[in-house]
Design a protein around this nucleic acid. Structure first.
Length: 270
DNA sequence: CGAACCACCTGACGGC
DNA sequence: TGCCGTCAGGTGGTTC
């Protein structure tokens, strides 16, 4: 569910409401959602205060006192919500009771999401974290182009590969490729450097616009305050197969690329 | 190296 | 009403 923009919105919301608050206790309603054991998790976070909230790719990173890090990957249906008035939900997986009586809840219908607590210096040992590619909003266009240019893989699969670029998912892959006029099934090596540079610009544009609109809510996504986003109203291709292209009126096609449902315009994207 | 599958889970929706 | 197939913002592993 949440991709880079949604995770960024959540991180900003949590930074505003959580920094300075201490974790009194941790309760794992569904311990399998934790990386590592429940006891070690509780031991690492209990008594620690939140010093800052950041995002890396689709990962939420809460910096805790003592150099510890609480990392959360929401996968498809995860939510991380700060509740001033704690209220149990049917899909709560981990509940963190804060010293002021509020609660930080990690809930996740499909249970794909994970939460892990890391001691100083150990986050970098986690394969998923260590192998993340650069941030699309921070990397140079030259670096972006280089990472896609030499590859025979389909360009949409490259965008979705978190080792190539971190944070892009199905929505923003389709939307950025449409804006750049590139077919999702084109191979990286078959797209010119100029068009790859244009793709980087379009990707940054669409990510920034989505962040400005509080992310995209299709069914499950909610920000840290439990509110929906609005960028779903700005989709040009995602989920619109069978409907007319906003640019040329051609019927948008549906296909599968990298195992994911894909929508594109046969006329505007080459 | 690349692509096509399956797996992990639950819930919503459409067809019959 | 209810059963069944299909699909979903992600990632990881296997096989060919």
């Amino acid at each position: 569910m949440p991709e880079l923009p949604e995770v960024e919105v959540i991180a900003r919301g949590l930074a505003a409401s959580l920094v300075g608050r201490a974790i009194r206790s941790a309760e794992a309603v569904w311990p399998s959602s934790l990386l590592g054991g429940e006891a070690a998790f509780a031991r690492t976070v209990e008594g620690r205060a939140v010093e800052g909230v950041a995002r890396r790719g689709k990962l939420l990173l809460l910096a805790l006192t003592g150099g510890r890090t609480l990392a959360v990957h929401l996968r498809m249906t995860g939510r991380l919500v700060h509740q001033p008035l704690p209220e149990d939900g049917p899909h709560d997986r981990v509940r963190l009771e804060l010293a002021d009586g509020s609660r930080l809840v990690f809930s996740d219908v499909r249970r794909f999401g994970t939460m892990g607590a890391f001691l100083p210096g150990t986050l970098e040992l986690w394969d998923f974290y260590r192998n993340l590619g650069p941030e699309p909003l921070e990397m140079s266009t030259a670096d972006f182009v280089d990472r896609l240019k030499g590859r025979r893989t389909r360009i949409k699969a490259l965008l979705l590969d978190q080792h190539v670029v971190a944070g892009v998912g199905n929505i923003y892959a389709d939307e950025s490729l449409f804006r750049a006029g590139i077919r999702p099934s084109a191979r990286g090596c078959d797209v010119s450097r100029a068009r790859l540079a244009a793709l980087h610009a379009c990707l940054k544009d669409v990510l920034l616009q989505a962040i400005a609109e509080n992310g995209s809510s299709i069914r499950d996504y909610r920000d840290s305050g439990g509110n929906a986003g609005a960028f779903q109203n700005a989709f040009r291709v995602y989920g619109r197969h069978g409907q007319p292209c906003v640019h040329c009126g051609s019927i948008l096609l549906k296909s599968t690329v990298a195992g994911r449902t894909t929508s594109h315009c046969p006329k505007c994207q080459r």
